[in-house]
Amino acid sequence: MYKNWWKILGALLVMYATIAGFLHSVPKLPILHESIRNLYFHVPMWFSMIILFAISVFHSIKYLLTNNATHDLKAVESVNVGVVFGVLGIVTGAVWAKFTWGQAWSFDVKQNFAAIALLLYFAYLVLRNAIDEEQKRAKISAIYNIFAFPMMVVLLFVLPRLSDSLHPGNGGNPGFNSYDLDSRMRMVFYPACLGWILIGYWIYTLKFRVRALDKYTTL
């Protein structure tokens, strides 16, 4: 039981954040209104995705250093789960945009670059499926993965700040601050981020264990 404390914590935090996210009071702000509650779901999806992609890069580097196939499996499974969280981030963002900007996809610079960043990792998965030879596939995809991560960071956090954007915190549009994200919201937002990151990591470990069992039982 003591080894699984972080899994229990993640589950409890997500349950708390989900219930409190819908029931807890939020600031009464123009335009945002009740849609500000989506902050508890939309942003944690992206944070979880970034953490999972960072884990993937770590294991890609480890694979190139050790040539251990276990690290290749961990890299691809963390990307698989990270992509799911990225898609959830896109979807929750589109829902939020529908109610605040008037349309789900307005081709805002942040939306466009987020979609391109996610496509980088879809390309990673396509690349892996296009190469049959195992060691060659692992090596090429590891190198690709190492370069994809900084490109993703630039697309999400650097380029959107250089252009006009409706998205908070980009293109001169102020991000959430003490006026919006008050103490009431922080009590839900921070646990939501931590909870979803832990759940994402848990799913990744489960997928890796299943993939490893399948790989080594077929040898």
Rank of each mutant, 00 (worst) to 15 (best):
S78W: 13
F58Y: 11
M15N: 03
L39D: 06
G102P: 10
I36Q: 13
G82R: 09
E34F: 09
K74D: 05
A17Q: 03
I50E: 06
N80K: 12
N38L: 15
T70G: 05
T18E: 00
V79C: 10
D72M: 10
A94R: 01
F58S: 06
D72Y: 15
G82N: 10
S106K: 07
W105P: 00
V87L: 09
S48A: 13
E34C: 05
M49Q: 13
A75N: 09
Y16V: 08
V79E: 11
L29H: 02
L13T: 01
I19F: 04
S78C: 13
F47I: 14
M49S: 13
E77H: 12
I55W: 07
P30F: 07
L23G: 05
G93A: 11
V87A: 07
S25M: 14
F85R: 02
D108S: 10
I31A: 06
S25K: 15
I19G: 01
L12R: 00
A104R: 04
A104M: 11
L88V: 03
V84E: 02
F22T: 11
V109F: 14
W96L: 09
F99W: 13
F85A: 08
V26T: 15
V81W: 07
K110W: 11
L32T: 06
V79Q: 08
V76K: 13
A69S: 12
Q111P: 05
V83Y: 10
Q103L: 06
K110G: 05
I31E: 08
H33E: 15
E34S: 14
V79H: 01
L64M: 09
W46T: 12
L29S: 03
G21Y: 05
K28F: 12
F47G: 12
G86K: 02
Y40L: 08
K62N: 02
L88R: 08
H33C: 05
R37P: 10
F58V: 03
V87G: 05
V76L: 11
N67D: 12
Q103I: 05
N80V: 07
L12S: 14
V109R: 03
V83L: 12
G82Y: 10
H33P: 01
V81R: 02
R37W: 15
L52I: 00
F85S: 00
E77S: 10
A17G: 00
F22S: 11
H24E: 13
W105H: 01
D72A: 15
Y63T: 09
A97R: 09
